[in-house]
Design a protein around this nucleic acid. Structure first.
Lengths: 339, 339
DNA sequence: CTTGCTTTTGATATCGATAACATTTATACA
DNA sequence: TGTATAAATGTTATCGATATCAAAAGCAAG
């Protein structure tokens, strides 16, 4: 059980089976020309030795790493999890694995992570967002592999993009508030310097307010821990304290909205009668809360699916791919009870 | 930008810097004997070429893979995410990376995954639970690396264990119900054949009911999608329909409890006045729901932390480790509003 | 300026599999 | 039965870094 004992190699299997190691290599993959009897003989030898292929050697030798890297801001986020899941599923057909990294919403951490991931020579890399450090951008540009930026539509894309405009997406919610006749509208967000998607949603707030000649002062920015509801509670308290006549508030995510709605209930307010609360991201828990959360569905899974399709196309590329560099998805408003 | 262009290798850097590749190899790691001037020269050459180390070659050559594998049932589960996070953090100090796989609560999938992971030659492997296919067990036993089973205390451990008794943990909740004078108690669970931890929680139900001479018939087993609240809603509907006088129900997880509580509210019932609902896992959302969810805290992060510590100890092992093979954590009841 | 040490650098073999090419064996058909 | 073709297997070189051992350079003390 100790580390000392050497694990069997392909050569060991070859010896035992009385063939060359090349034949073992072939026998262990499907769709290769090895006679049935030889393959069985080799399989038996491999089982006997408890042989497990060393993919490090295999990938190193063949030059293909067999995986694709993806960075997301946070593990504890149903939306990104949906993207990753759809992405993994899409790549599984091609026997491509996914190597995942978390940036924790920090571009510095992203840079570090991207370098780490590139050292492992992925066949493509997907990053969340279009905001990177200079060095990170350089690393990606020089990586020699397809790069896809997601969940955003950067002004100067590095390579390919699968995303949507967070600004336009959040406008859907504010237009919804305004269509219901509300004028006293607020926003609860996070650290805009770290989360550019959150910042764009805030800009959507400012834009819409300006367009309709309304005040954009009713905002609260909270320190957002990953997957945190507490900031929603503090945010709504702070807004209702300073502007008690606020009629509708959009939160930068459904989790924040969850915290805000439940805090309203604890303060004795009725949502949506006393105040309307909107979320973002169409998280599952939003359907089940009473009241259910009106939200923006950004098609997180679709982003992962599209990214996977793009990568498959780029990797099987014979050099004449015609597909668009930028794929946009369409966020939609999901009207439920809370707003 | 196309895949064609070869990335620079260490030899390229060595050429440009006018040294041997061995010196480059040394210069790129800390704590090695390379003169300051040479190191700077090499660093400059590497930057100029945009050189990024190929860890595949590096790890292959040195024989160390530099990572540890871990399998968890589901990505969309805050508890396992907490374990993984603490685990990653614990290993980061030792420059060990974590390679994560999801079994989706299927032992067959686990077997497949474990084989895939072992092919990458991790330095240790952590699995969730103690239920495996025969082949999976064999693979783990023959892997030649430390194996840790977590989130459970198997009767016949493969190697090391960091876990707790799910059975005893769930008994905490039922004893809590009983101490409040309840006798008509129910349980909402999932597919026991797939989730052994859920099954043990159910067995805790049966044991406690038997011990107190109470009926254990008030149960509902639902098909549990990962991170799903809907089964909680169906579960409580089914129980309240068949046994309308039920006084208290424990759910196999907080997410199920969430679905159950909000469904009770939609049915016009008050939790906890009309019926008490308990959860399992101490998920963050349980704190914020109204009513907040009474639950069992199993110390998910602690499990990850302990597992990481154990691995560090085992890997730095000089052959005379004395640490216990089995580490148990202590689940606790968190009394909140719902029960 | 020589001896004996430490520090720095280099040459070579090697990790385990596979690509590419070469060769042998099996199969089909005239 | 012989030849053409396909299928099965083997040989050799190689991927990119590092371990290991060897050599050179730097340095202190006599």
């Amino acid at each position: 059980m100790r580390n000392k004992t050497k694990l069997p190699t392909m050569a060991d299997v070859a010896n035992l089976a009385g063939v060359s190691s090349m034949t073992v290599s072939r026998a262990l993959k499907p769709d290769t020309s090895v006679s049935k009897s030889t393959r069985e003989k080799i399989q038996k030898a491999a089982d006997e030795l408890g042989y497990v292929l060393d993919t490090r050697a295999s990938e190193f030798s063949s030059g293909k790493s067999g995986f694709v890297a993806i960075t997301i801001p946070s593990i504890n986020n149903g939306n990104f999890a949906d993207t990753v899941k759809a992405f993994s599923d899409g790549l599984a057909e091609q026997d491509l694995q996914v190597l995942l990294g978390y940036t924790n919403y920090h571009v510095d951490r992203e840079e570090q992570l991207v370098e780490q991931l590139l050292k492992k020579r992925p066949e493509a890399i997907v990053v969340t967002g279009g905001m990177h450090t200079d060095r990170c951008r350089l690393l990606l540009e020089n990586s020699g592999i397809p790069v896809i930026e997601t969940w955003d539509v950067p002004e100067q894309p590095i390579d390919h993009v699968v995303g949507f405009s967070n600004l336009q997406a959040s406008e859907l919610m504010f237009e919804h508030f305004i269509a219901q006749g509300h004028k006293k509208i607020g926003f609860i967000g996070g650290d805009n310097s770290r989360d550019s998607r959150g910042r764009d949603r805030y800009l959507g707030f400012c834009n819409t307010m300006e367009k309709h000649g309304l005040s954009n002062e009713r905002v609260s920015f909270q320190e957002l821990a990953p997957f945190s509801m507490e900031p929603g509670a503090s945010g709504i308290r702070s807004i209702m304290k300073e502007w008690p006549d606020t009629e509708a508030v959009m939160c930068v995510s459904d989790l924040i909205a969850f915290g805000a709605i439940t805090e309203c209930q604890r303060m004795g307010m009725n949502v949506p009668n006393d105040v309307k609360i909107g979320g973002f991201g169409a998280y599952e828990l939003g359907q089940f809360l009473n009241p259910s959360i009106t939200t923006i569905d950004v098609g997180a899974a679709q982003i992962g699916k599209f990214a996977a399709e793009k990568i498959i196309e780029l990797l099987s590329d014979d050099g004449n791919t015609k597909s668009a560099k930028i794929v946009k998805t369409e966020p939609t408003l999901i009207k439920r009870q809370s707003a």
